[in-house]
Amino acid sequence: MREFEGMNTPALEKFLRDNGVDLQGDLRVELISGGRSNLTFKAFDDVSAWVVRRPPTSGLTPSAHDMAREWAVTSALGGTDVPVARAVAFDPEGLVLGAPTTVVEYVGGTVIRTQDDLLALSDSDIEANTSELVQVLARLHAVDYDAVGLSGFGRPEGFVRRQVATWARQWGSVQTRDLPDVERLRDALDAAVPASSESSIVHGDFRVDNTILADGDPGTVAAVVDWEMSTLGDPLTDVALMCVYRQPIFDVVLGVNAAWTSDRYPSADSIAERYARESGRDLPNWDFYLALANFKLAVIGEGITHRAIAGASSGPGAELAAEATQEFIAAGLDAIGTRSRRFASTSYETAGGAPSYDR
């Protein structure tokens, strides 16, 4: 049986048994394809299956592969109306696979990753999927994090300003060349941080391919996955990132023609409006949040190429992901510098008093 880099099947089998998992037959492991971040495996016996996740083997981006974070939030959300896989076991010290590792129950279903995956969906399927994604995100942001035991999960006060500093610091860790516009965007963001913001659980990486859809029902999310960037913070950072992911240049970061960049999905503005309506939230300082999301994706793209150069490529095209960095930085500068004028007359409002954009 093939052993994958970053995996030790005998050690994992012992770990599962030690944590009360009654294995039926030998444990087998497969590498789950897709994703540019943590290594994800499917482990299974003759009856059951689990998902095992751990950080890459080298070229890590600081704080971007936090398995303890993923474990804490998925464990806490198990009793809420946010769909997550059942938490099974956690190795915080990395004694089993050489890095912190989470194990959750395998959730069967469909993952929509590429535009080819969308060929099986009708326009009404995509509409139902969009509606469900927005509703799930709104439900996540409505969870009382104190009530589910996550009051210490993050520091919501000052979250947005720390985000600017965090991604600027991570740029310093992963940059592969000098790009003066990165500093320009960082300074513009730092000067425009909102004076106040709401707080909620945030996923930090929410889009269609980080969900598992019920088989035959794209309008039902069976589980939200990839929680390693979750925390307590400003819910609008989740919404803006979900919208900015819609840009076609994101294909370069993922190395595929991503489903979420397809023009069959509604526009970013439409998605933001749907979220505002569903959540009952206004979207104040929206240009700032769009610029911050672009900044984050610029650093993520650079980090993927940085890891590839370090010998930890996450798949074909990883060395090219940084080609998207300059476009994301330009989009961020455009958002924070000119979008407020461009959209000044197009605030979202309804006669029923639904939320509106404050640009």
Results as ranks from 00 to 15, higher is better:
295 F>Y: 11
317 G>D: 03
155 R>P: 00
189 L>W: 00
121 L>R: 04
297 L>I: 05
230 S>W: 06
178 D>C: 11
122 S>F: 05
161 R>S: 11
357 Y>M: 12
40 T>E: 04
38 N>D: 11
32 I>H: 11
129 N>E: 11
225 V>C: 11
218 P>D: 09
164 V>H: 02
350 T>H: 13
79 G>W: 12
277 R>K: 13
290 L>W: 05
211 T>P: 02
335 A>N: 07
269 D>W: 14
161 R>F: 02
355 P>D: 10
91 D>T: 08
296 K>V: 05
262 S>N: 05
197 S>N: 12
85 A>D: 02
47 V>K: 15
33 S>F: 12
181 D>P: 06
233 G>V: 06
140 L>N: 02
165 A>C: 07
206 F>Y: 14
102 T>L: 10
181 D>E: 15
272 A>T: 06
127 E>F: 12
80 T>V: 10
89 A>K: 06
359 R>G: 08
202 V>E: 03
338 T>I: 09
319 E>A: 15
137 L>Q: 06
2 R>T: 14
55 P>K: 06
49 A>H: 08
250 F>H: 07
18 D>K: 15
147 A>G: 05
43 A>M: 07
95 L>Y: 10
237 T>G: 09
265 Y>M: 14
121 L>F: 11
238 D>V: 10
294 N>G: 12
223 A>M: 08
235 P>I: 05
3 E>Q: 14
268 A>K: 02
113 R>W: 02
320 L>S: 14
95 L>W: 10
349 E>T: 14
272 A>Y: 00
76 A>N: 06
153 F>V: 04
292 L>M: 06
55 P>L: 07
184 R>A: 14
187 D>N: 08
34 G>P: 01
287 D>T: 13
100 P>E: 12
244 V>L: 08
110 T>P: 01
119 L>V: 13
212 I>W: 00
167 W>K: 01
235 P>W: 11
232 L>C: 08
351 A>P: 03
174 V>A: 14
323 E>S: 13
156 P>E: 07
19 N>V: 06
11 A>G: 06
176 T>S: 14
349 E>S: 12
239 V>C: 05
76 A>Q: 03
33 S>T: 15
198 E>V: 05
155 R>D: 07
168 A>R: 04
70 E>N: 05
150 L>R: 00
206 F>R: 01
101 T>F: 04
14 K>H: 13
63 S>A: 11
221 V>C: 09
235 P>Q: 08
242 M>A: 13
190 D>P: 00
231 T>D: 11
167 W>C: 02
198 E>T: 09
267 S>L: 08
208 V>A: 08
307 R>T: 00
198 E>C: 09
93 E>A: 12
23 L>P: 02
317 G>P: 01
289 Y>P: 00
337 G>S: 12
219 G>T: 07
289 Y>E: 03
136 V>W: 00
189 L>H: 01
348 Y>E: 13
184 R>Q: 13
168 A>V: 02
159 F>T: 02
280 G>T: 08
291 A>D: 01
212 I>N: 04
307 R>N: 03
287 D>A: 14
166 T>G: 07
262 S>M: 03
286 W>G: 03
193 V>F: 02
